[in-house]
Simulated assay, not measured.
Amino acid sequence: MTTVRVVVGAAVCARGRLLAARRSAPPALAGRWELPGGKVEDGESPEQALVRELREELGVETAAEERIPGEWVLRPGYVLQVWTARLVSGKPRPLEDHDELRWLLPGEEQQVDWLDQDRPAVAEAMRRLAARAATGIPGARL
């Protein structure tokens, strides 16, 4: 029986925008864009892993909110699950595995070359952001 490892991704949203992170490593992924995150370690929940990974990779404190439906195979034995996340403190900066960050408004997601596995979750996150913006509620979260 093979164990599937979960990799978590974060749809970090603030002021109606989604955070995109450009990979700097490994070489096969360098230059492509993703939702930041990483592997769930033994003894961690996916939400705990998300908060830890964003602290390590971006230097921010976050709160995991809700899971975006779906699960995407990254490679044999690894699947991606995505959660929405709220910034609690700090300003994201590329500390580990990334060399650039961008905040994208709904409709701007095609400006970057997303990793294929992130595309469905990005589309859903942007759909939710656009719906919130249409409500006209200031500060409406994803």
Rank of each mutant, 00 (worst) to 15 (best):
E56D: 12
P120A: 10
E56Y: 05
K91Y: 09
G38V: 09
T2K: 02
G16F: 11
R52E: 06
V79W: 06
Q111W: 12
L104T: 04
Q111C: 02
E96N: 15
V12F: 06
A25L: 12
I68C: 03
E66K: 03
E61H: 09
A63M: 14
C13V: 11
E65Y: 01
M126E: 05
W72L: 13
T62V: 15
L19I: 06
E53P: 00
G16H: 10
T84Q: 03
A131K: 08
G139Q: 10
E66T: 11
P26R: 03
L29S: 07
P27N: 10
V40N: 10
R102A: 15
V8T: 04
P36D: 07
P138T: 11
E47D: 03
L95P: 02
G107C: 10
A131R: 14
G59L: 04
A131Q: 12
E66D: 13
R5D: 00
R86S: 12
L54R: 07
V12N: 07
R86K: 15
C13K: 05
D97H: 15
W33S: 07
E53W: 08
R75S: 11
D118F: 13
R17H: 08
A11G: 05
L19W: 01
W114C: 01
A20S: 06
E108T: 08
A133T: 02
G90H: 05
V6P: 02
A30L: 04
E66L: 12
R86Y: 04
W72N: 06
V7C: 07
E100W: 03
W72K: 15
V7H: 09
R119E: 13
L95T: 02
A21F: 02
G31M: 09
P120R: 09
A134T: 01
R52I: 05
A64F: 08
V51N: 01
P92N: 02
R102G: 05
A121M: 14
L87M: 12
A21T: 10
R32P: 02
R132G: 13
R5N: 02
L142G: 06
E53F: 01
V73W: 12
L50I: 04
A25R: 14
E56S: 02
R67W: 11
G139W: 14
R17G: 00
W103Y: 09
V60R: 06
R86M: 08
R52H: 09
D113A: 14
E100H: 03
D99I: 10
R32G: 01
A11D: 11
G16Q: 09
I137Q: 15
V6K: 10
A125V: 04
G9K: 04
D97G: 01
R127M: 00
L18W: 12
A133S: 13
L115F: 00
D99A: 06
V4D: 06
W33M: 07
D116L: 13
E100N: 03
L101G: 05
E124F: 00
E71S: 13
A20W: 08
V40D: 13
Q117W: 15
V60W: 10
C13M: 03
T62D: 01
P26C: 08
A130H: 08
T84V: 01
L74Q: 04
T2N: 11
G43Q: 03
Q81Y: 00
L129K: 04
G31H: 14
G59P: 05
E61P: 00
V88E: 15
S45M: 07
S45C: 06
R93Y: 00
C13D: 06
R15A: 13
I137W: 13
R141S: 12
R22V: 01
A85H: 05
L54W: 04
A11S: 11
E61C: 08
G136N: 14
